[in-house]
Design a protein around this nucleic acid. Structure first.
Lengths: 213, 213
DNA sequence: GTGCAACATTGCAGAGAATGCAAGAATATC
DNA sequence: GATATTCTTGCATTCTCTGCAATGTTGCAC
């Protein structure tokens, strides 16, 4: 969700500014001193709030660093994917994830700082992935809808449908993880959305090797 | 590593017993009262050690719950996989992971308690997966060896080799995660190793759909 | 089996994380 | 402007985790 600075009231704007100040302070401090040399007290001092207020915004030091979770896809995007009659289950799934990941926060400065931080601290990256559990489960439901639409026999077997939708979602998130690492690796370059497309393409090439003609 | 009770010295046996007592106490308490109602103090009391000793064994309350990380595959298993001339890169990878996962701890009681706990607390399951980073990286190296052996052109392009080995490893771990969830879901039944084989088979079927004859 | 080295356990002190509560300040609403 | 809502803050408290130094156990050489 892009934050609408113009339309929001003072309270909302202040809240947004405070959250951003905390994230900035946290990211800068950790970049400068290392993750475990930074305390909530110090972050709060730089962000100019009380340590108690920090915990009104973030549940932990780490969650101030890893950023928000992606938004669930819009109903339109879901319908388009579920009813797509052409291509494999994976085609279109990349785009669906890309939209969700790019949707939030076009705050480039935070994004870049966060990218280099998650690169330096794989534990934080793992936390970020773990925080996506809800989102992942929503994606799994969508995949299940698509599978059921494609194959009535599968729709009838709820156990198999669950198992298969889980596996496909896991694989999709594996590709997403891959895309993220590649994106963080080549520091300048392409957008995360484009990188996601590349990873899904590469995945397709691995799984369906060029048929021998 | 199966612990060799007979051959080990007294010190080693005591250490093993203490670790097991801590794990047991932790698992039982959390099963009874819930994760955040249990403190290290309480675990230590039940395990009959001092709280300070707890932290000589485990870095955190959680790591006493999630169990050890898998052992890296043996050199023999690696060589067999890397030099296998038939099948796709994924064939054999399932077996490699199965061997690593089953290798450790045939302590059934702990294993079952842990299984139901990780099922109840997805955060713990996520921690367990995250803790496998080192193991995952070792697997990635092995996959890269195999890719290089299969395709000299790929061997020459280290960037592409890295990217592809990462993607394949991510997908393999996605299948492993899937296998684990299925295994935990059907409580009795098959071994984790068998379930892993099933997940890799299902993965193969999804990726290479039955050719229309 | 005595003595010494290596390792384990423990208590204590202390930093830091995180939460509940209640008072007071800022913002919203009418 | 009065009142309700929401935010911020300080304070007390519980819990996690670490370093250190003292003490206890085990392993090993002789």
């Amino acid at each position: 969700m892009t934050f609408d600075h113009a339309r929001a009231g003072l309270r909302e704007r202040k809240r947004f500014a405070t959250a951003r100040a905390i994230e900035m302070a946290a990211l800068n401090l950790v970049a400068a001193k290392g993750l475990d040399k930074v305390t909530v007290d110090e972050i709060s001092r730089i962000a100019d709030i009380s340590p108690r207020t920090f915990f009104n915004y973030f549940a932990s030091k780490e969650s101030a660093l890893v950023g928000e979770t992606p938004e669930p896809p819009t109903a339109d995007a879901v319908a388009a994917y579920v009813n797509a009659s052409s291509g494999s289950v994976f085609d279109g799934l990349g785009a669906l994830l890309a939209a969700a990941v790019e949707g939030r926060s076009n705050d480039t400065e935070l994004m870049l700082k966060r990218r280099s931080l998650l690169k330096d601290y794989p534990q934080l990256f793992a936390m970020r992935m773990a925080a996506m559990r809800e989102f992942e489960d929503r994606v799994r439901e969508i995949v299940a809808l698509r599978l059921a639409a494609d194959d009535p026999a599968l729709a009838a077997d709820s156990g198999l449908l669950l198992s298969r939708s889980r596996l496909i979602t896991n694989v999709a998130f594996a590709a997403m993880k891959h895309a993220w690492v590649c994106w963080a690796d080549n520091e300048g370059g392409t957008s995360l959305g484009d990188r996601l497309k590349d990873s899904f393409d590469e995945l397709g090439r691995i799984l369906r090797p060029v048929p021998v003609v």
